[in-house]
């Protein structure tokens, strides 16, 4: 029985570690790449602890939801320290969502037009490749609500992207 569960854990890690690692890497800021492996491990530790609660037909969005909570907790802890320790924060240390997106000011302008929830929905859909139903599962909203809000986010992002003045 135990061996079965362990092999099931190995399968879950094998199948989903890349998606979890990518999800976390896209949103690491203000953490660094050096924290990434630990965040992945922490995510799957929580998954393992709550293994029986994982829906068999929607494992990835459920695991992404766990990763999201793990990341938020770590970011909160980091930010509590950063106010004083800003002077010793590594400079140019690691890629972050902000650092990378700012490379294209037009994309950044579009993202800045969105609220936090809308931006998260759009990025889950475009960057993480989740379906509307999976986005709804991650954010604990109904699929209908997710569809409406995602449509609104896409519309607003495109509008602000298109209005960007290259000059």
């Amino acid at each position: 029985m135990r061996a079965t569960r362990t092999s099931e854990l190995e399968r879950v890690v094998r199948d989903h570690q890349a998606a979890v690692g990518n999800y976390l890497r896209r949103r690491l800021y203000p953490l660094t790449d050096g924290d990434l492996d630990d965040l992945v491990a922490e995510t799957f530790t929580v998954v393992w602890r709550r293994f029986d609660a994982m829906p068999p037909d929607a494992q990835l969005p459920w695991i992404i939801g766990v990763a999201r909570n793990v990341l938020h907790n770590a970011q909160r802890s980091r930010r509590r320290r950063s106010a004083y320790e800003g002077a010793v924060t590594p400079r140019g240390d690691a890629s972050s969502t902000e650092d990378v997106v700012v490379a294209d000011a037009r994309v950044r302008h579009g993202l800045e037009s969105l609220g936090d929830d809308e931006r998260e929905m759009l990025l889950l859909h475009v960057w993480d490749g989740l379906s509307v139903a999976d986005v709804a599962s991650v954010l604990h909203v109904t699929p209908d609500a997710a569809a409406v809000r995602l449509s609104r986010a896409r519309h607003r992002f495109r509008a602000f992207y298109d209005e960007w003045d290259e000059s």
Binding site: V13, V20, G21, R26, T45, V101, R106, V126, R158, Y161
Partner: peptide, 29 residues
């Protein structure tokens, strides 16, 4: 297109791979 541009800015363009999945599973256990 706006969404092609957004996709092109994906910070995880190179897929994540844990350096040692076996050690990861052992650590989780």
């Amino acid at each position: 297109d706006a969404f092609e541009a957004l996709a092109a800015q994906d910070p995880a363009a190179v897929a994540y791979q844990h350096p040692d999945p076996a050690a990861l599973v052992a650590r989780i256990g």
